[in-house]
Amino acid sequence: MNNLPDETKKRFVAVLNKKMDVGRTVNVLGHMSVGLSNLLTPDDAVYVDYTDRDNNIYSGVSHYPFIVLKADNSNKIRKVREEAITRGITFTVFVDTMIVGGSIVQQSKTRETPELDLNYLGICLFGETEVIREITKKFSLYG
Rank of each mutant, 00 (worst) to 15 (best):
S59T: 14
K109F: 08
T97A: 10
R133W: 09
Y142I: 01
F94D: 08
H63G: 06
H31I: 11
R87M: 13
T86P: 00
E112P: 03
V61D: 04
R87G: 03
N55E: 14
I135S: 04
N55V: 03
A84N: 10
E115P: 00
V13F: 03
G122W: 02
Y47P: 00
R53E: 09
V61S: 09
D52V: 10
E83I: 07
N119E: 15
L36N: 08
G127I: 05
F126S: 03
H63A: 05
V46S: 08
D54C: 04
E82Y: 05
V34A: 08
R11M: 15
M20G: 03
L29R: 02
K76S: 12
L29T: 12
F12Q: 06
G143K: 09
S62P: 03
V131S: 10
R81K: 15
R111H: 08
D49F: 01
G127W: 07
K10E: 04
A45N: 09
V28T: 11
N75F: 03
S108D: 12
N55P: 00
N38F: 02
S33W: 00
K10S: 07
R53G: 06
V95Y: 04
K19S: 13
K138H: 11
S62N: 11
A14V: 05
N38P: 00
N56V: 02
N17S: 05
K109L: 11
T92N: 09
N27K: 02
N3V: 00
K138T: 13
E134L: 10
D54I: 06
T90H: 03
V68Q: 12
T86K: 14
A71I: 02
G127N: 03
N27I: 01
N56T: 12
F91M: 11
I99K: 11
N17V: 13
I57H: 06
G143H: 05
G30Q: 12
I99V: 15
E115Y: 06
V105T: 14
K10Q: 10
K109W: 02
Y50S: 01
S62A: 13
T8E: 07
F126C: 02
S140H: 04
Y47N: 10
A14I: 12
K70H: 09
I99L: 14
D96R: 05
E115Q: 13
L40G: 06
L125N: 06
M98S: 08
K109Q: 13
Y58L: 01
T97D: 05
V46H: 08
I57G: 03
K9I: 03
R78Q: 07
T86V: 12
N119H: 05
I57N: 06
L29G: 13
P114N: 09
D52H: 01
D43L: 08
K76V: 05
A14P: 01
